[in-house]
């Protein structure tokens, strides 16, 4: 934990006061925890019989399967959303009027609508109009529609955040529009956007839990739905949901940390002034460096 911003280098009196406040606050927090534990005990929620089923290998496998389904849906949806979102960002920046307008409508509409509504629509309405998908396909479709709109805006912001000099330099050395986008703009924009993309992945991972509203067959059920199944079977909804919440917290906390780490690493690298575009042809590296120098001066 970093030092508190507002109270650096306390004097002796303030230190005594803080120490006193710490003891008091600590005591209150401990009492709070004790109260919760006692409450759990009193209502019989700490009984081993309610927790033990969750530790059995068969249950663990059942939950693990749910986690695999959750991750599978999240990763497929994320991949597709990145693809569609990228196209939308290019569309909104295109020179062609109707293309710009259409992708604008797409992004603004899907960003403004609750995901749950999209999921319900996708699962209830689309089959009526003859679109048949495997059950979790509808979930993925809704997730892609929503997240591609959000990602489209992230991508657009990333592209716009680059200095104009980048595009100008690329055009100046004779690259076409698509060439400058592909070799100069997008590689740099992507690197700036990685932290935002990872945090969107956290959101998406949490959103897959909405999939439990649509009727998935037993083997397709994601983590939350399986937790509900367990809770009903063993009559321990509190315990099963707590376990699942902990699983989500661990995964998402790790992902958030990853995003933070990427961001810090990136900032450090930019401030060091070294621009190295990995995995792109020499030409683009040269162009990017030239552009960077121009944009910077």
């Amino acid at each position: 934990m970093t030092a508190p911003v507002l109270a650096d280098a306390l004097g002796p009196r303030a230190r005594r006061r803080v120490a006193l406040a710490s003891v008091l606050a600590g005591a209150v927090l401990v009492l709070l925890v004790v109260a919760v534990v006692l409450r759990l005990q009193d209502t019989g929620q700490l009984d081993a019989s309610r927790w033990r089923p969750l530790a059995e290998p068969s249950t663990a496998r059942f939950l693990l399967g749910g986690l695999v389904n959750t991750l599978k849906v999240a990763l497929i949806a994320m991949g597709l959303a990145i693809l569609v979102g990228g196209l939308m960002a290019l569309g909104r920046l295109a020179r062609n009027g109707p293309v710009r307008w259409l992708s604008g409508v797409y992004v603004e509409f899907f960003r403004a609508v609750p995901l749950l509504l999209l999921i319900l629509f996708s699962a209830l309405a689309l089959p009526k109009y003859g679109l048949r998908l495997p059950a979790f396909g509808y979930l993925i479709l809704a997730l892609v529609a929503y997240n591609s709109a959000v990602l489209g805006e992230i991508f657009r912001a990333g592209i716009l955040s680059l200095e104009r000099g980048q595009t100008e330099a690329a055009l100046a050395i004779g690259l076409g529009y698509w060439q400058s986008m592909l070799f100069v703009i997008i590689p740099q924009a992507v690197r700036r956007m990685v932290p935002a993309i990872v945090s969107q992945l956290v959101t998406l991972l949490k959103d897959t839990s909405l999939g439990f509203v649509i009727g998935l067959s037993l083997q397709d059920r994601e983590l939350l739905r399986r937790a509900r199944d367990l809770g009903e079977f063993y009559r321990n909804p509190l315990q099963s949901l707590v376990v699942v919440a902990v699983i989500y917290i661990v995964i998402n906390f790790a992902l958030s940390r990853l995003a933070r780490w990427l961001e810090v690493r990136q900032r450090r690298r930019y401030s060091a002034g070294a621009i190295s575009v990995a995995g792109v042809e020499d030409l683009a590296v040269v162009t990017a460096e030239a552009g960077g120098r121009m944009g910077g001066s």
Partner: peptide, 29 residues
Amino acid sequence: VSPVPPLRAAGAVWVQMLRNTPLTVLLLL
């Protein structure tokens, strides 16, 4: 942001727990 460590920890736990759990899970829980 307070200078009192237990409060800082409590705040961090509150934020990380709620932020990283799906809203659906919280509601059902």
